[in-house]
């Protein structure tokens, strides 16, 4: 197994573009002063500094592919009572700068193995999108599919970019004309999507990840081939 690229020091990145993905999530495209290589699934630490010197750090997954060499993208889900995400979503805009370090993490990373099942809940889709995008750009022959669970169409990130390789599930309400009633992922959904001898990447809120990891175990995945990343304020 190749080592994942390891973290470098703090640097200032230029926000070269910023756009909303949903009413409550925003993508920031960041040009690094000192670019580094990374693997899909790795994240960055962001550090904000107030005028009085107070600092706040948080981690954000990279959404873009490493093959997109000119900049990296992070997608930030705005947490209502958050400290950093409302700043990144509401205040920061193209032309600003952001201090960050990366790339971080050598566990929840895709090194090109296949086949791969991606299961994302809500904003847990962000690191999975890096994997999907990287596969499309560099390894289209690797079998890969995604199960994406969101509450409503308004919570779906990258809606225009998810194609036949992604299956969508709505837990509260689907779009107009959606054939299925709102529901959670079932054992059958996971069993139908499972690949024998594959890897599974699961990312989302803690309860979602726990539930999906159990469904994957039931579908025959050994624990060591279930990679999880849990999100969430509590």
């Amino acid at each position: 197994m190749t080592d994942a690229p390891s973290v470098t020091g703090w640097q200032i990145a230029d926000v070269v573009a910023a756009w909303p993905e949903t009413p409550t999530a925003k993508t920031l495209r960041l040009k690094l002063a000192e670019p580094w290589p990374f693997l899909p699934g790795q994240h960055v630490d962001v550090r904000l500094t107030a005028p009085d010197g107070y600092q706040a750090q948080r981690s954000y997954s990279i959404a873009s592919s490493p093959a997109d060499a000119h900049a990296i993208e992070i997608t930030v889900q705005r947490l209502e009572d958050g400290e950093v995400s409302p700043y990144l979503c509401d205040v920061l805009e193209a032309g600003d700068q952001l201090e960050l370090r990366g790339p971080i993490g050598g566990y929840f990373v895709w090194r090109g193995e296949g086949p791969v099942l991606l299961i994302g809940g809500g904003s847990g889709l962000v690191p999975l999108m890096s994997i999907l995008r990287h596969r499309r750009l560099t390894a289209p022959d690797v079998p890969m599919r995604a199960l994406v669970s969101v509450r409503t169409p308004g919570d779906l990130l990258y809606a225009g970019e998810l194609g036949d390789d992604a299956r969508l599930l709505y837990t509260r309400a689907g779009p107009p004309g959606w054939a299925e009633p709102p529901r959670r992922l079932t054992p059958a959904d996971v069993a139908d999507a499972a690949y024998p001898d594959g890897l599974a990447f699961v990312c989302g809120p803690t309860g979602f990840v726990d539930r999906v990891a159990d469904l994957l175990l039931q579908a025959g995945y050994p624990a060591e081939r279930i990679l999880t990343e849990r999100f969430g304020p509590t």
Binding site: W10, A50, P51, A56, Q57, E83, Y87, V91, Q97
Partner: peptide, 30 residues
Amino acid sequence: MSGGFISRGFFGKRRPPEGMEGRLPPGQYY
């Protein structure tokens, strides 16, 4: 370290409760 970089428009709102300031290690939040 970045020496002097200030995040435009950031003021912070998770400073630790009064009396607990010394208990937060660098980069941590309450």
